[in-house]
Each structure stands twice: as C-alpha cells, then as structure tokens.
C-alpha cells in the first residue's frame, strides 16, 4: 500500500511543473493531487518534521546510509 503523501513528494521531485504549481499555491496543488485533508494541513503548516517522519528520512540515524570508512 503506497502513501499518497510520499507519492506527492515523488511528484514534486520529478515534475518541475508540479513543483512550480506547489510553490505558487501549496494548498491548491496538494488538493488537486488528491491528498487528504490531514496531509493538506501538513503542507499548509509546513510541518517539516512530520513530513520527514512520514517519509522515513531521518538524518540523525546512520541506518541506510553508505557511511564510508576512515581508512585511507
């Protein structure tokens, strides 16, 4: 089951026109994409922390990162 908010992030990442529409009117663009009201509120509030949590994109944990070694 896919998360529509995550799909919206993918759309913004890959479609410059969608990103421009979002930047012009975030609420209208999010609604047109089909986000539900609670997710639209996240966009309106610019709730970065919650959006990152939903996208599972923590930057303080090293899991999933290709951390290199210190050895030369």
């Amino acid at each position: 089951m896919t998360d529509t908010l995550v799909d919206y992030m993918l759309e913004l990442n890959s479609n410059p026109e969608a990103l421009a529409q979002h930047e012009a009117n975030p609420e209208e663009a999010a609604r047109a994409f089909g986000l539900d009201e609670s997710d639209i509120q996240l966009i309106i509030d610019q709730d970065t922390a919650e959006i990152e949590r939903r996208c599972d994109s923590s930057t303080t944990e090293t899991k999933g990162l290709m951390i290199s070694f210190f050895k030369s």
């Binding site: 896919t2 998360d3 995550v6 799909d7 992030m9 993918l10 990442n13 939903r54 996208c55 599972d56 994109s57 090293t62 899991k63 999933g64 990162l65």
Partner: peptide
C-alpha cells in the same frame, strides 16, 4: 536507499525488490 520515498519509487519501477538496509 535511506528513505520511504526512494523505496516507494523503486518498488513502482520493479515490484521484485529486496531491501539491503535489513543488514544494518
């Protein structure tokens, strides 16, 4: 890949994916 966005995208491209982050 480190996040759900990337995983969702890759699964869309090919349903037969295996997540290597389970090794951490």
């Amino acid at each position: 890949v480190p996040d759900k966005v990337s995983k969702q995208w890759l699964t869309r491209l090919n349903a037969n994916t295996v997540d290597l982050t389970d090794f951490y």
